[in-house]
Write a protein that binds this DNA or RNA. Structure first.
Lengths: 147, 147
DNA sequence: ACAGATTAGACAAGTAACTTGTCAAAATGC
DNA sequence: GCATTTTGACAAGTTACTTGTCTAATCTGT
């Protein structure tokens, strides 16, 4: 269920943020497909990102992402099938598996970042450099506030 | 799958928008529950909103929201069970049902708007009036741009 | 050293919010 | 007045999660 097509000006500011996030998400999936990663859904990205820093355990990822371990396990299974990640037994802990990026996974992450930067570039074109920086500042303020 | 807890500053601006939208959504569900609408999920709100203007057909709602008629039908069924909306046969069209807000539905919408305004107020407290207005302006610019 | 608690991940099943496909009944268009 | 379209219902499938239960491996206290 998406957003009704109301006059934008009549909406609350939080609603505007939701709308913008929505419109991004749709466009992102399109760009993914265009980049040849048809089996990579937008929801997979947040899992892939922290793997850039090195192999991680599923449990650690689950805690970091704020979801259940099963959610991670299922997503990892899908990503493994698509050759984006591989799971190898942790040499230091026989129970655990290390989830690591494959070269294809790394390539997909590059595409993702490029896509995000393309959107940012589009915003820069719409707003200008100064306003884009201002937007960034405001977003960071809201994200880092105590509440 | 949510966002990894990265340093905020290292992220692209579109990613920041996603993070903010996410953090809102979680907080919103909490406030709903606190207002006694435990059976009302965040996803139901977009359907309820256009009903404020009067009874609507499910098909019209589906088109307006950009989802299938079944998605609307299923959501309406849930909302009807919770006495947020009622479905009455359209006097002018025997096939169609008019979906209308009940008093409880109207009350829920008031709660929603109040919740959104509370978040906005919190943002005002964080940013100050001038910066909040600037944020609004920037969001509206991005939402109304041609692309 | 070893029983007991904890932790890692697998398997099973359930839920929410959608989707497509099919269908009957009612309305509309020549 | 018959063909087409529209409306909503029913059935089933998908995605992205959830909780619950289980086994195997590791850590802890004595």
């Amino acid at each position: 269920m998406v957003d009704p097509s109301w006059p934008v000006d009549a909406r609350t500011t939080p609603a505007l943020v939701q709308m913008l996030a929505r419109s991004q998400a749709t466009g992102l999936a399109t760009r993914f497909a265009a980049a040849g990663h048809t089996d990579l859904r937008p929801g997979h990205a947040p899992l892939l990102v922290p793997l850039l820093a090195g192999g991680r355990h599923a449990s650690d990822l689950a805690e970091e992402l704020g979801v259940s371990r099963q959610a991670v396990a299922q997503t990892v299974a899908a990503l493994e099938k698509g050759d984006y990640v591989e799971r190898v037994t942790d040499p230091g802990d026989g129970r655990a598996k290390l989830i690591r990026l494959t070269p294809r996974g790394r390539s997909a992450l590059r595409t993702m970042r490029a896509t995000a930067l393309a959107v940012e570039e589009q915003w820069r074109a719409s707003l200008g450099e100064a306003r884009l920086r201002e937007l960034r500042t405001l977003l960071v303020m809201l994200l880092t506030e105590p509440g």
